[in-house]
């Protein structure tokens, strides 16, 4: 009988130095029973993909406050694919203008969360995203 736990990488790409939001989400997901790997500030797409590979995570959550999401998110998703991690689900949190959301979703992000999102929703949608791909 296998008992797989959901493993999530919470990453802070880019140069902004605020990781309060990232830490709040990380703790909430832990409290939802997940194993959360947190890697700290200023991660390059390469570092994120490396960590995702070594940790074999199911989900990567990126927190971006710098406004550079339109560059960073596609870069991370491309790196993940390059590493053979196409199956990994990606969500984005932070300050993301409404207009940018469709572009990010098209690139393969399954959800974008603004500041103040109920963390329980983040946890529920991770489970939903994973059970969908399992079918």
């Amino acid at each position: 009988m296998t008992d797989r736990k959901i493993r999530v990488l919470i990453a802070k790409p880019g140069l902004d130095g605020h990781d309060r939001g990232a830490k709040v989400v990380a703790r909430a997901l832990r409290d939802a029973g997940m194993e959360v790997i947190y890697t700290g500030l200023r991660q390059t797409p390469e570092m994120i993909a490396e960590a995702a590979l070594q940790e074999d995570v199911d989900v990567v959550g990126m927190s971006i406050l710098s406004g550079a999401h339109n560059a960073l998110v596609p870069a991370v998703i491309d790196k993940l694919a390059e590493y053979g991690l196409d199956g990994v689900k990606v969500f984005v949190g932070g300050i993301i203008p409404e207009d940018d959301v469709p572009g990010l979703m098209e690139k393969g992000v399954y959800a974008v969360y603004g500041p103040g999102t109920d963390t329980q929703i983040v946890a529920e949608e991770i489970k939903a995203a994973l059970s969908q791909s399992a079918n």
């Binding site: 832990r30 194993e35 959360v36 790997i37 570092m47």
Partner: peptide, 21 residues
């Protein structure tokens, strides 16, 4: 792991960023 939820926060990699790559 948390004995209550079974979840865990794994933060050791924060100090090992030099090694990536």
């Amino acid at each position: 792991s948390s004995p209550f939820t079974g979840g865990a926060l794994l933060g050791d990699r924060i100090r090992m960023q030099d090694l990536i790559g």
